[in-house]
Design a protein around this nucleic acid. Structure first.
Length: 228
DNA sequence: GCGACAG
DNA sequence: ATCTTGTCGC
C-alpha cells in the first residue's frame, strides 16, 4: 500500500497538449465490434525497462485455445518520453509496434498489458495499438486508471462492471483467481467487451494473469537477463 | 481546494 | 515500470 507518491517532475504542458490532441484523433478510428472469426492465435505483449533510458517490449504468440507457445520476440530502443498518466501509449507503443513486426506468425487478436477503452479519453494503450495495426486488441490491466466499480466477489470468475460517471460501460473487473486482486478488462479495437472477457477467462490457467500476458511478462524478464 | 493517477 | 526481505495467509 503506497502512502505517498514519489516525486515526478512535471510534464511539459505543450507535450501533454499535443499528445492529448493526437489521442483524440486516434479515438475517432476505434471500432468496437464482435470478432469476425474465432481466433486460432492470440498474442500477448508487455514492456519493461532494463535501465531508465531503455525500453524492452516483448510479444508472445500462443495457439488458441490450447495456449501452446508458438513464438516469442523482443525489441529494445531508447526511451524518449516520461510516464504520464493517460499518455502511456506514446511512451511504449512505438517500441511495441516494432516488436510486432518481428513476428513471423501474426496473431488474430492481441491481449495488451494495460487498458483498452477504460481510459479518460477511451484511448488506452490497447486501443492505441489496435488502431495503429488495425488489428483486434483488448486490454488487461492490474490497476484501475479511471471509472468506478464495486469489488467483485472473491471467487474466481466473479465479474462487476467498470463504468464512468455517466454510467457508460468502460470495462469489466474480473476476479481471475480466488482472493487475488481483480483484473480490469476492456476492449481495445475491433473487439467488444463480451469477447475481451470471454478470451480472458479462456486464457486462465491457475494464475492471476491470463497466459498471454503472463508469458509476455515472463519472457520480458528472461530477455532482460539475456541482455547483460 | 483535494484526491486520483495503466505501466 | 523499478528498487527490495521477510513474512502472512491459504
Amino acid at each position: 500500500m503506497a502512502y505517498y507518491r514519489p516525486y515526478t517532475p512535471p510534464a511539459d504542458p505543450r507535450i501533454v497538449r499535443d499528445l492529448t490532441q493526437q489521442q483524440e484523433e486516434l479515438r475517432t478510428r476505434v471500432r468496437l465490434e464482435p470478432l469476425s472469426q474465432e481466433p486460432r492465435f492470440i498474442a500477448g505483449c508487455d514492456s519493461s525497462f532494463p535501465t531508465p533510458e531503455t525500453i524492452l517490449s516483448v510479444f508472445v504468440v500462443l495457439k488458441f485455445p490450447s495456449l501452446e507457445l508458438v513464438e516469442k520476440v523482443y525489441q529494445t530502443s531508447t526511451v524518449e518520453l516520461p510516464y504520464i498518466p493517460g499518455l502511456l501509449s506514446f511512451r511504449e507503443a512505438p517500441n511495441v509496434l516494432r516488436a510486432y513486426q518481428q513476428l513471423h506468425q501474426k496473431p488474430d487478436i492481441i491481449m495488451v498489458d494495460g487498458h483498452g477503452i477504460a481510459h479518460p479519453r477511451r484511448m488506452g494503450i490497447a486501443a492505441h495499438i489496435g488502431v495503429m495495426l488495425d488489428m483486434p486488441t483488448f486490454g488487461v490491466a492490474k490497476q484501475k486508471l479511471t471509472g468506478v466499480y464495486q469489488d467483485p466477489d472473491v471467487a474466481k470468475g466473479s465479474i462487476s462492471p467498470l463504468t464512468d460517471k455517466s454510467g457508460d460501460l468502460l470495462g469489466e473487473v474480473i476476479r481471475s483467481k480466488d482472493k487475488v486482486n481483480p483484473l480490469f478488462v476492456s476492449p481495445g479495437h475491433r473487439c467488444d467487451q463480451a469477447t475481451a472477457t470471454r478470451l480472458t477467462l479462456a486464457c486462465l490457467r491457475g494464475y492471476k494473469l491470463p497466459e498471454p500476458t503472463r508469458l509476455a511478462d515472463h519472457w520480458a524478464e528472461e530477455f532482460k537477463k539475456e541482455l547483460r
